[in-house]
Amino acid sequence: MLAAERHSKILEQLKAEQSVTVSQLSLALDVSEVTIRKDLIKLENDGLLTRIHGGATITNFLPLERSFTEKLEERSEEKQAIAHQALSHIQPGDTVILGAGTTMMELAKLLRGLNDLTVVTNAVNIAMELNSQGKHHVILIGGEMRHKSFALVGSVAADNLRGLSVFKCFIGADGVHPENGLTTLNLAEAQINQVMMERARKVYVLADHSKFGETHLAKFAGLSDVDRIITDAAAQHLISKYAELGINLELASLQGVSR
C-alpha cells in the first residue's frame, strides 16, 4: 500500500472515530507500528491531525465557509436527488419552513409542481425563487442577511419565527455525527436553525453523504431531535449504524435526476 493511500485511510478512520491508536492502525492497514508513527508525524506536520500518546486525534480546526455560489456545483446530482425525495413529504396546502442552503434551493425549485403552499424561509434567494413561481404564500422572516448564504439571522429573525407555527421543517446541516449531532459552520445560522425546528411538528434534515461524520463549530440539534434524515445512496452503508441509534435515514436515488 502506497503512503498516500495509507494517509487517506488514516484520515478516514479519524473522521469516523475522532481518535485512533498506533496499534489499531497498524492492524487495520497491515503495516508496522514504526511505519504508522512516521505516517502520523507526516500528517501532523501537514496540519491534518494531532499526535497524542499512543495515537492521534482529529485536529480541531475551523474550515473556511464557502459562499452559496461556490457550493452550488458541488454534488449537484446528489442534492437534486435529495430534493426530489424530500418533495414526496410535501402535499398541496402544507405549511412548511425551508432553511437556507443549496439543497434547500433545489427543493424550492421543485415546489413549482405543487399548489397553495405556505412557505416560511430565512433565505432571501429561496423567497425570490418561490415568489417567481407565483403559486405559494411566501413568508420571509426578516433579519440581518449573511452574504455568503443569503440567510437572514439575528434576534429579529428569531423573534419573528417564534410567532409562527408550521407542520414541517426542511433544514440542512454542514455536519451529521452520531455523537455530536447536527452542526453548522456559523453560530448565527445555528441559532436560527434551532428556532426553526422548535416551530415545526416534523423536522426533516437534508444532507448529502459528505456531511456524515463531520463536526463543525456550532451544534444546533441532536440526531434524536429530527424525524428523518434524507441523504443520497452513497450513505447506504450507514443505514444500520444509524438505525441502531433510532435514526431514520432515507436514501434518495439518482435515477431520473437530470445530468
Rank of each mutant, 00 (worst) to 15 (best):
Q133V: 09
Q194P: 09
I141R: 08
D39Y: 00
M196R: 03
K148M: 13
A83M: 09
S132C: 06
G172L: 04
L72Y: 15
N122I: 00
E77T: 14
F150G: 08
A158P: 06
R51V: 02
G175E: 07
I126T: 09
N160G: 01
L40D: 10
S224Q: 15
S23E: 13
P92M: 04
L48P: 09
K38F: 03
L49M: 05
A207T: 04
V34A: 15
K71R: 14
H84K: 14
S19N: 05
L217K: 10
G154V: 03
I90S: 01
H147N: 12
L152V: 03
P92R: 02
S224H: 14
Q191Y: 12
Q24L: 03
R201W: 00
T69A: 14
L107T: 12
K202G: 03
L98S: 05
D159T: 07
R228E: 13
G55Y: 02
I171M: 02
C169W: 12
E144D: 12
R75K: 07
F68S: 14
R6M: 05
N248F: 07
V22A: 03
V153L: 10
E179A: 02
T59E: 13
A56H: 01
L107D: 12
H89N: 11
T103F: 00
I41W: 14
L87M: 07
K202C: 02
N60T: 10
T121S: 01
A218N: 04
I41T: 13
M105H: 13
K9N: 04
G99V: 05
I41M: 14
E189N: 09
K168Y: 00
Q255M: 08
L114N: 04
V156Y: 06
F61L: 12
L2C: 11
A233D: 11
I141Y: 01
G213C: 03
L14G: 05
T50N: 10
F167N: 01
D46I: 11
L164I: 03
G213D: 05
E74C: 04
L245V: 00
V20I: 09
S19H: 04
S258A: 14
V96I: 15
H7Y: 13
K38Y: 10
R146Q: 07
L185W: 11
K9A: 12
I171C: 04
A56Q: 02
H7A: 09
S240Q: 15
N125R: 13
I239F: 12
R66A: 14
N193H: 12
E73C: 06
G93I: 00
E244T: 13
L43Q: 06
L114V: 01
S210W: 05
A235I: 08
N122A: 02
S240L: 03
V138I: 15
L164D: 02
A234V: 10
I230T: 05
A28R: 07
H237F: 12
R146I: 09
L187D: 13
P63D: 01
V176T: 07
L117N: 04
F61C: 08
L107F: 02
I229Y: 01
A56T: 01
I52T: 07
A16V: 02
G172D: 04
S67H: 05
I171Y: 05
D116Y: 06
F212R: 06
L87W: 13
M145E: 10
K42T: 15
M1F: 10
Q133M: 14
Y204H: 06
K15D: 03
A3K: 12
P63V: 00
V124K: 00
A56G: 00
S253N: 08
S32K: 13
L254M: 10
